[in-house]
Design a protein around this nucleic acid. Structure first.
Lengths: 214, 214
DNA sequence: TAGATTGTTAATCGATTAACAATC
DNA sequence: TAGATTGTTAATCGATTAACAATC
C-alpha cells in the first residue's frame, strides 16, 4: 500500500488533499474530478492525478474520484488509522497549545507531558498531568512512545533529542530554534522553524510595500 | 539591494543562514568559507555561493566570507532592521505562545492583540492588553498595522482575513486550519499548517517502524 | 608568487505540466 | 455508442550541483 520511493513533495501534499476531501465529504459531495479538485485547491489536475497514482489508481475513467473512498485511501496511506504514542517535552504556552490541538487528532495519541518545573494539571486535558523530566526515562521504558514534540529552548534541544533517541523515540517534531543533527537511520526530524517562516513572510510584505510593484 | 526575481526557495533559506551566522558570531568566529558553512549546515558549498550571489558578491576570493558582515547583509536583505507593525487575532494558547516568542524578535513589532472574549492582561507582555474584536476597525485605522497573525478556528479565518485585507493588512501568518484565498496582488499569505506537518512526520515514522527497512 | 576560495556559467537532476491513449 | 476523465508517458521547467576561470 505505502509505495516506496515516493518523493517527499508528494507526501507533503497528501494531508492537504485529505483536509479538502474531508470538507467535501462533510458537505455531501459524492464524486469529484481531478479538474474540479485542481480548481478549488489551486493546483493542476495533472499534478493531482500524478500524485495519487504514486499510490494506486483510485479513480475511474469518465467518472472521476469517489470523495469518501479517496479520503479513506489517503487516510490509510498516512497511517491515520494507527495511533502513534507521543510525548511533549516543554509545557509552556506552545506545548499547551499543541497538546490541545492534537487532543483528538487522528493518528496521534499524546500519552505524556514533561517539563522541568513542577507538575500541574492541564486544564484543557485533565487526564494528563505534567511530569518532571526526572521521570522521563522510566516512563519511556514502560510506555515506549515513538514520537516526541520538542518545545524547549534551542540550547537544550540537541542533547534532549539524543537522549530520547536512545530511549527509542523515532520521530521528532522540532519547535526548538536549532537544527537537530541525528542519525537519519534511527530518527526522522520534522522542523517547524517559526522564525524562518515569519521572516519569509516579512520579506514578502516588505518587498510588496516598499518594493517596486509593477 | 533586494534583487527582483529571486526564487522563494532561496529566500526561505536566508533565515537559516542568518541563524547559523548569528551563532558563529556569538562564538567569536570571524571568517568562514562556503565549504565550512556547507559542512555545518548540511548543504552544498555550491548552493550557498549560488544563493548569496543572488544578492551580491559578499565574499572574497581566497578568503571566504566575513561572518558578521555577511550576517548584517542578510539582515538588510530580510529587512530585519525595519519594524513591521503586527497584530495577533485569537489569543488562545497559541496566540500567547507566538506573542511571547515574537516579543523581542527582529523585524516584527507586536502592537495589538485581539480576541472575541473579554480583555485580560498578558502576563508575558504586560504592556499589551487584549482588545475585543469590536475595536479592530478603529485600531487598524489609527495604527495601520501591516501584518496579521491568525490564530483563530478555520471557520472564521477567511472572512476575518478579507476584512483585515480591507483594513490595509498586507501579510497574513496563517495558523488557522484552512487555505486562505486572497488576491495575491494585495496580500501575501504564509501558511503554517501544523496538521500537515505532523502528518508528514507521522507518515515517515510509521514507514520507518513498520516499513521494510533496508 | 602560490594557494585558496569565490563568482558564475554549464550540466544534471528532479519535479511539474502537457498530452493522449486507454477505458469507464 | 459518445463523452468524460483517468492513468501514464513524454516534454518542460526550475532548482541544485559541478566545474572552472577569475582574483584575492
Amino acid at each position: 500500500m505505502s509505495a516506496e520511493n515516493v518523493s517527499i513533495s508528494v507526501i507533503r501534499r497528501l494531508p492537504r488533499y485529505y483536509r479538502y476531501l474531508s470538507t467535501l465529504k462533510k458537505n455531501g459531495v459524492v464524486r469529484i474530478s481531478s479538474g474540479e479538485l485542481a480548481a478549488h485547491m489551486q493546483l493542476t489536475a495533472s499534478q493531482i492525478r500524478h500524485d495519487l497514482n504514486c499510490f494506486g489508481g483510485f479513480g475511474q475513467q469518465g467518472y472521476g474520484y469517489n470523495v469518501s473512498q479517496l479520503a479513506s485511501e489517503i487516510e490509510k496511506i498516512l497511517y491515520l488509522d494507527n495511533h502513534i504514542d507521543t510525548i511533549i517535552i516543554g509545557i509552556g504556552n506552545l506545548g499547551r497549545a499543541l497538546s490541545s490541538f492534537l487532543f483528538d487528532s487522528k493518528g496521534i495519541s499524546i500519552i505524556g507531558l514533561f517539563d522541568k518545573s513542577n507538575c500541574e494539571i492541564m486544564e484543557s486535558n485533565p487526564s494528563l498531568s505534567i511530569m518532571p523530566m526526572t521521570e522521563l526515562d522510566s516512563f519511556c521504558k514502560e510506555k515506549k512512545p515513538k514520537l516526541a514534540i520538542l518545545c524547549i529552548p534551542g540550547g537544550h534541544a540537541q542533547s534532549v533529542a539524543e537522549h530520547l533517541s536512545g530511549l527509542g523515540i523515532k520521530g521528532f517534531w522540532n519547535f526548538s530554534q536549532t537544527e537537530l543533527v541525528l542519525d537519519e537511520k534511527t530518527a526522522t526530524v520534522e522542523n517547524v522553524h517559526l522564525i524562518d517562516s515569519i521572516m519569509t513572510l516579512s520579506y514578502n510584505v516588505n518587498t510588496m510595500i516598499g518594493g517596486k510593484e509593477e
